[in-house]
Every structure is written in structure tokens, then in C-alpha cells.
Design a binder for these strands. Structure first.
Lengths: 188, 188
DNA sequence: TGTACATCAGTGAACGCGCGTTCACTGATGTAC
DNA sequence: TGTACATCAGTGAACGCGCGTTCACTGATGTAC
């Protein structure tokens, strides 16, 4: 049965949002089109009225995930504050709402080019933001790019490792240690 | 046609080796049983004479990959030397022979328990080794566990990020910057 | 404003391909005599 | 040492399930008069 144009647009957004969440939580291949549509309260057949293919959705959902994430890092949130939120069990346990870099890390290489492009753009924006924070706060702004790379690697690595560690207390310790070591080593 | 017991054992090893390589290079789900068997110069039907299932092979191959990797880090190789090899385009471009942590990072959560267990064991051994190197070389041995976590996160994060960066020169810069920042920050 | 009809978003059955797994068969191995 | 036969590793066709995608159909929307 047909629905109103507004309703259809709402559905489109719901599908994109469901995809951005599920892809991050279960991976691209681990998420079925039917799952996404069910999450959006629709049946799978309606999918192809909204997107040309699962792969096309993957690219849009990747972009969406980065957008949401960068929006959530408001300009009032400093790098130390952001790290305090990022390197946490809370973030570890919510991959669906979490950092797309950590979520798609190894999956992305096996996706089609358009998905990789979106990922690429997201990573660049993310690193730029870190670099800017370092430059704003610190003295040696020439080093801020290099430092940003290292800090980003550490952030992503910590979440990825924490997620793959079954022992929850060991996993939490890993996060805590990493967070405090960053503070000491980079003085942030 | 039947082959000798030695030949069969050789085939078993070949399958395991092919799996350890291909799983790292293309992921668990991205690698077909047929591909593994072809790499081992056999046909897919023979697989189930050697392993009960693809999943069982995944666990063995994961263990194998860690074993190979840790064996390659001989006792004569110091942490700085190991980092010089790890955080490189060479490593980035050879996931099949590379670090299983970086290769399986996000995949592992979607595998069956036995595979996760093997991964877990491997990560622990790896971190222990880093921690020992730090304790041996440094003064503050109480901090070496925490530092080891951070360094491991950074190593894994750097390779994962470098692999997902399409622009090769940007990717190489990221590695170079991360390697040198670690030296400065941790004095190693 | 009310009615008739064309449009088109959504439904759910069905298709088809890929891949893990099974199985009847083959023929070399290696054991029994 | 040589021969006959049972064993069993490997082969490749076939099975079956899952999942992305298609399609005929439905019925509410929204336009034309």
C-alpha cells in the first residue's frame, strides 16, 4: 500500500539510520538486508525502492555514521574530554553508535570502492579534528599532524583490542591503562 | 586415490598454512573452503577428511598464525627493532604473513568461541612479550604493563589504519609519523 | 467539496547464485599370506 | 620377495540453505474534473 511522500522520506531515513547502526555493530556482511528493513519497521521488498543495492546503502550508511559521530563531537569538547569518552567500556559496548573507524577497520578493505571512499573521507576529517585540537592546545604545532596520527591509531587500536578481549575486566584494564598512558606520554 | 600417510600429513599442514595465510589476507568469511584447498593443491572434497568444519579450521589457523608470528620474533630482536619491522609498508602490504591481531581485529567478534579463544591466547602472549621487553630495557617496570597495552594498541591501530587508507603515500606517512612519535613519546 | 482514477510505496512469494557440506566412486597404499 | 585384497585419501558431482534481488500484486495517496 502506498504511503505519503513524507512517510516515505521518513522510511528512507529510518533505513539509513538502521543500516548505520547495524553495519557498525555486526559488520557489512554480517548484516542482512532483511535485518535492516525489520529494524526500520518495513519488509525487505521495499528496500529496492529506496536504494539500488546493499552496496550502495553501505556507502551511504558509512557516510551517515561518520556524520553522526563528528556532529556528536561538538566544538566545546576538547581532545582530553573526547578521549575520556572514547576510550571507555561504554564506547566499547556500543559499536552500533560508536566510532566507524573502529567498527569497519578490517572490513573496509573488502568493500566496494564507493564505501572505501566514504570511509577515507571520514578518517581524514577525524584526523584533521584531532590535529586541530593539538595545534590549538599545544606549542609545537608542526608536530601536531604526526601526533594526531599516533593518537588516532592508539584510540582505534584500543577500542578494537578491547572489543576482542573476552575477559571484561582485562578489557577494561586495557582501556584504563591506555587512556592514562596517553595522558602521561602526550601530556594531554 | 589414496596417498601415503606422510603425504596426507603434508597435505594437512599445507591446508593449515594456506588457511592461516588466506584468512589473514581476506578475512574468515571472505575466504572460501575451495580457495584454501586450491592453495594447498587439492580439491574441496578432501577438506572434510582433514577438518570437521571451516569453523574448526579457523580456530586452528588462528593459532597457527600467532605461532608463526611469535616464532618470527626471535629473542635477539628488541622491541625497537620489532617496531621498525611492524610499522612499515612492507607489513601493511602483506596481511597474509602479518600480525593476526591486525588482520582479525574486527572479524574475531563474529567468529565462534573456539576461534575467539585462540585469538585471546595469542593477544595475551603478544602483550606479555612487549611488556617483558619494556621491563628488560626500562627502569619503571611497574608501568610496563600499562605501556605495553598502549604500544600494542598503537601498533595494531597504525597497521589497520594504514591498510584502510587508499592513498599510499598518505598511508606511508601515517606509518612513519606513528613510528617516530612512539620513539619520542616512549623513548624507545 | 466530492468522486473516479492513476500512481506508486510497500508486501511477500519466488528466483538464483554462492558456498559449506555430503557422498558414491576411484585408485594408490600398505597389509596379509 | 611377490601377489591379492582391504583400506582410505582424494575427486568431483550434487545437495541444501541463506541471502540479495526481482516481481506481480495490493491498496492508500493524491490528482483531475
Amino acid at each position: 500500500m502506498k504511503v505519503s511522500k513524507e512517510q516515505a522520506a521518513e522510511h528512507h531515513r529510518a533505513i539509513l539510520h538502521a543500516a548505520a547502526t547495524l553495519f557498525r555493530a555486526r559488520g557489512f556482511d554480517g548484516t542482512k538486508v532483511t535485518d535492516i528493513m525489520a529494524e526500520a519497521k518495513l519488509t525487505h521488498g521495499a528496500f529496492y525502492g529506496h536504494f539500488r543495492s546493499k552496496s550502495e546503502l553501505a556507502a551511504s550508511a558509512c557516510q551517515q555514521a561518520f556524520e553522526d559521530r563528528l556532529d556528536a563531537w561538538g566544538p566545546d569538547i576538547s581532545l582530553p574530554e573526547y578521549l575520556d569518552r572514547y576510550i571507555t567500556p561504554f564506547h566499547r559496548d556500543r559499536p552500533g553508535q560508536g566510532c566507524p573507524i573502529a567498527a569497519f577497520a578490517t572490513d573496509i578493505a573488502r568493500q566496494e570502492k564507493p564505501v572505501q571512499m566514504q570511509f577515507q573521507i571520514g578518517v581524514s576529517l577525524f584526523r584533521k579534528r584531532i590535529s586541530m585540537e593539538l595545534a590549538a592546545a599545544g606549542k609545537h604545532s608542526t608536530e601536531s599532524n604526526a601526533k594526531a596520527s599516533t593518537i588516532l591509531s592508539t584510540m582505534v587500536g584500543a577500542i578494537v583490542l578491547a572489543r576482542s578481549t573476552i575477559d571484561r575486566s582485562l578489557s577494561a584494564r586495557l582501556l584504563k591503562e591506555t587512556r592514562s598512558t596517553i595522558t602521561k606520554q602526550f601530556a594531554i
